[in-house]
């Protein structure tokens, strides 16, 4: 469902060129749970941004569901993000001035669902992440783990086929991290494809497939390095 061929990404500022991805090629099939590890600055977030249509790349091809994303305009990319992709961020990215219900509602409004349909979906996903009694709470009134579960609910409400998570447990203690990880495994078992960037080898190891990124490239067959990876 996701095919990248020789994708390169160069960030240019006045003085420096950063090759964040170099000839990056990867295929991910429907239903996979892929973990991505690698040293800091190796290009993991850049890869995720490109995969999630948050950023355009410098060269190469990226097909999502067989569709070449190079030719898409901003409106179409926004629509694909909204319908096919769910995002989970390290710092949760909940909107502080909206309560939990309204936060989960954000992508559904862009989708154009009517009020009844939105409410049905919001209630369903909030119950699913176990926060049914907190709908009227503001994000600041929840713990980190709870906020991340709200963010997961928000990512799932549109029933995306594809979930991208950038260090979803990076800001959580191990107990909360475990509950979030279980939630993700649960979601994957129901058929949603997940790509998760993480720093934690034991979480990465639970994915069905591991990718190790170094210097903007996928390096293969070095599982022992994964263990050595850190912050």
């Amino acid at each position: 469902m996701l095919t990248m061929q020789n994708v390169s990404m160069v960030y240019r500022t006045e003085s420096v060129e950063t090759h964040a991805l170099r000839d990056f090629s990867l295929e991910v099939d429907e239903g996979e749970f892929v973990s991505v590890t690698g040293p800091s600055g190796s290009g993991k977030t850049t890869f995720l941004n490109i995969a999630g249509l948050l950023e355009e790349f410098t060269s190469g091809t990226y097909k999502l569901d067989g569709k070449d994303t190079n030719s898409l305009g901003d409106t179409e990319r926004s629509r694909l993000r909204n319908e096919k992709i769910g995002f989970i961020f390290q710092s949760f990215n909940l909107i502080p001035e909206l309560d939990i219900f309204d936060n989960v509602d954000v992508p559904l409004r862009y989708r154009g669902f009517n009020a009844a349909e939105r409410k049905r979906r919001i209630d369903h996903v909030i119950d699913m992440v176990g926060l049914g009694s907190r709908k009227k709470h503001l994000p600041s009134q929840l713990s980190g783990g709870q906020q991340q579960r709200v963010a997961i609910a928000r990512a799932l409400a549109g029933e995306p086929r594809f979930l991208l998570a950038d260090e979803p447990t990076g800001n959580l203690d191990s107990e909360m991290a475990e509950s979030v990880m279980q939630l993700l495994e649960d979601i994957n078992s129901k058929g949603t494809t997940i790509i998760m960037v993480t720093h934690e080898p034991n979480l990465a190891a639970r994915a069905k497939r591991n990718i190790f990124v170094r210097d903007g490239r996928i390096s293969t067959g070095e599982p022992e390095l994964q263990v050595a990876v850190g912050g």
């Binding site: 901003d74 926004s78 995002f87 990215n93 954000v106 862009y110």
Partner: peptide, 9 residues
């Protein structure tokens, strides 16, 4: 974040 969640410009 809103853009990432699917808001067009």
């Amino acid at each position: 974040t809103r853009r990432a969640l699917g808001a067009p410009k």
